[in-house]
Every structure is written in C-alpha cells, then in structure tokens.
Amino acid sequence: MIPVEAYLVVSTLLFFIGVYGFFVRKNLIGILMAVELILNAVNINFVVFNRFLYPDHLEGYMYSLFVIVVAAAETAIAISIIINVYRKLSNIRVDSINELKN
C-alpha cells in the first residue's frame, strides 16, 4: 500500500510549484494555471485525509468536488477578465495593468 506520506509529498510539491508559478509568472494565464495547481494540491489533501482518517465519511470527497466546481467558475471569470485586458492593452502581462497607479 502506498503510504500517506507519498501522497502528501506529491501534494506539497504541487502546492509549492503553484506558489512559485504564482510569484514568478508575468503572464496572466500562467498565474491562473498556477492557482489551479494550488487548488489541486489542496484537493489531493482533502481526498487523502478523508481516505486515511475517516474512510466511512464523505465530506472530504464532497469538498474536493466543491473546490473543482468553484475553480471552474473562477477560471471562467478570470479568463473573461483576461480577454478584456487583452482587448484594452493588447497584452496580458500582469505588470502592465497599473492604470490606477500614478
């Protein structure tokens, strides 16, 4: 049986890859993808802990489904914002969105 630590190592790696991507990517789509990675790392944790700690409960599975649904909605909104940004600025670099500054 695969031990629980292996799952957690994967999810931690996934999480920090996402965090790293969120920090360093300048492309809005890239940032969005990094956020998805973070969310999926969390999803893995939900599922793993539910499976190992409370096998006869379903809340962990339910929450990971819920996160997936919300993430889908969020992605839709984010992409629509990105499209608008692109129409206005002709690029999607995050540091060019600074019209309220100065």
């Binding site: 969120f22 920090f23 360093v24 940032i31 995050v94 309220l100």
Partner: peptide, 9 residues
C-alpha cells in the same frame, strides 16, 4: 508597489 505578486510573497 501595487504589484500583486509582491504582496502575495
């Protein structure tokens, strides 16, 4: 700075 990524850091 107004830079979201820096805030996130």
């Amino acid at each position: 700075s107004g830079n979201v990524q820096q805030y996130a850091m």
